[in-house]
Amino acid sequence: MKVLHVVPTFYPATYWGGPIWSTKAICDGIAKLDDVDLRVLTSDAAGPAINDRVTPTKLPYPVYYAHRMAGHCIAPQLLLRLPRAIQWADVVHVTGTYNMPTLPVFILARALGKPVVWSPRGALQATQDWPDAPNLAIKRGFEHVANLLRPRNAVLHVTAAQEARQSLRRFGGMAHAIIPNAVDVPAHVPRRERQGPKRRLMYLSRLHPKKGLEALFDALAHLPATFTLDIYGTGDASYVRMLEARARLSNGRVRMHGHVEGAAKSAAFAQADLFVLPSHSENFGIVVAEALAHAVPVLTTQATPWQDLDRHGCGRCIDLPNVDLAAQIAALATCDLVDMGQRGRAWMRRDFSTAAMVDGFEALYRGLVMQKRQEVIA
Rank of each mutant, 00 (worst) to 15 (best):
L108I: 15
A187H: 03
P104W: 04
A356M: 08
A219H: 05
P134W: 00
T95V: 14
I50S: 06
P134I: 02
N51A: 14
A268P: 06
L82N: 01
A247V: 01
A225E: 15
W88Q: 04
I286Q: 14
V358K: 01
V54T: 10
D359S: 14
G233D: 03
A378P: 00
R53I: 02
F217V: 11
P131L: 11
R194L: 08
P190W: 10
H259N: 02
T304P: 01
Y203E: 10
A268M: 12
L41Y: 04
P297F: 07
P48L: 14
A46S: 14
Q87H: 09
K265Q: 13
A247N: 07
W130I: 12
W306S: 10
C73W: 05
Q128M: 06
V323F: 00
G17T: 06
A75H: 06
G173P: 11
L78W: 07
Q374A: 12
F269T: 10
T226A: 14
I377E: 05
W347E: 13
H144W: 15
V254G: 03
V183I: 15
S353Q: 14
T334R: 15
C314H: 09
W16R: 07
G252P: 10
L136P: 00
A45C: 04
K265T: 03
F269V: 11
V105Y: 06
V276Y: 04
S279F: 00
A378K: 06
G172Y: 10
T127I: 09
V94F: 01
